[in-house]
């Protein structure tokens, strides 16, 4: 089922992407063509094929449970636009 212009606006809002009104139509076209491609792939009979979440046949590497990171607050905070008393400051958010 192809997407509608409102779907584009909704997805853009969820992803915090600024899409201007005149960009909605071309974005919709691109997205629908991508979905067509996915539709073609989904039409392939995959009976007996295990679902794949990753392209490479590797498994997760595990590390020992040890603290290896020193305190680097000052360096890591150096490029924050605003900070105070060791906290990053951001525009007020209350949910």
């Amino acid at each position: 089922m192809p997407l509608a212009p409102d779907d584009v606006r909704k997805v853009a809002r969820l992803a915090r992407l600024a899409i201007a009104d005149d960009e909605v139509a071309p974005t919709l076209d691109t997205l629908n063509r991508t979905l067509d491609l996915i539709g073609q792939m989904q039409a392939v009979d995959t009976t007996g094929v295990e679902p794949m979440s990753h392209a490479h046949d590797v498994s997760l590497r595990l590390r020992p449970d040890a603290v290896t990171e020193p305190d680097c607050r000052d360096a890591l905070m150096a490029n924050a636009p605003a900070a105070e008393r060791g906290l990053f400051l951001v525009p007020r958010v209350i949910e």
Partner: peptide
């Protein structure tokens, strides 16, 4: 109750000063 975080080697100890136990990851 791990000593370090799930995806980084920063400490999980409770009560540290803000952002002293937050690494680049």
């Amino acid at each position: 109750s791990t000593r370090s975080k799930i995806f980084s080697g920063a400490s999980t100890a409770f009560g540290a000063e803000p952002n002293r136990q937050a690494c680049a990851v």
